[in-house]
Design a protein around this nucleic acid. Structure first.
Lengths: 116, 116
DNA sequence: TGCTTATTCAACCAAATGGTTTACAACGCG
DNA sequence: CGCGTTGTAAACCATTTGGTTGAATAAGCA
């Protein structure tokens, strides 16, 4: 394996067409042909996009005769939200500490100002 | 503009080095040199990464003499979580509707079974 | 069996990406 | 002023990516 899960998930969702496909699959499962219909790119291009989404763990595929129904694996989203939340929260905490620090400094200044 | 905000944010975070930098900046602001120190790539490569993060709106840079302190813009994370949550929730709802449907079918079968 | 439908595989191409090196700009300091 | 420090810009290179077309595979149907 050359790249980790998180990288593949983020990279997969960096493409607007793939985000579109995810949005479509959130409504319900669909075949490659059904997913390709709205776009004016070849069906092979959509097949490639689905492979990327599958390798990222965002989509799984079953089999129904010639068709390969695609299914959204929403679990992968939690992996991303976990990552994002971790650093968003850290940044927020840092901001609050800075805020408190500035408030303290302001207080100190006020104290000083009271005895010229 | 050739690509939308969301695409740039996802693409920026698809690179492990850039996710590392975000993690580092969540702790506190830092200069390019400080951010580059842990890696064995050139400082120019890190500078490029920062440019990508900046264009994605994830990082902003001030100026302190020769130094250009980098600051994490945590707001951008909300854009992502909003997108993710939207489709995760849709997929969950769909799953629950399917669940209810299957339960109904099972009930119907039970009713049938009661009168042979 | 052969025909049609649904999908993937393979080879190819242009553009983007992540890295390098060299050169250059901005600033503080002696 | 000249000098070291800090960072960006430019040119270049290898690899990846998103697309194409044409051939191959898989399964239902006449």
């Amino acid at each position: 394996m050359t790249e980790d899960r998180l990288s593949r998930v983020f990279a997969a969702l960096a493409d607007p067409t793939r985000r579109d496909i995810v949005a479509r699959l959130a409504v319900g499962d669909a075949t490659v042909g059904q997913l390709a219909a709205p776009y004016d790119v070849s069906i092979q291009a959509i097949s490639k996009h689905l492979k990327v989404l599958e390798e990222a763990g965002l989509v799984s595929r079953g089999r129904d005769a010639q068709r390969r129904p695609c299914h959204l694996e929403a679990d992968m989203f939690e992996l991303m939200t976990a990552w994002i939340d971790r650093y968003r929260r850290a940044a927020e905490e840092r901001y609050q500490r800075l805020d408190a620090l500035l408030a303290d400094l302001a207080d100190a200044d006020n104290e000083k100002g009271k005895q010229p």
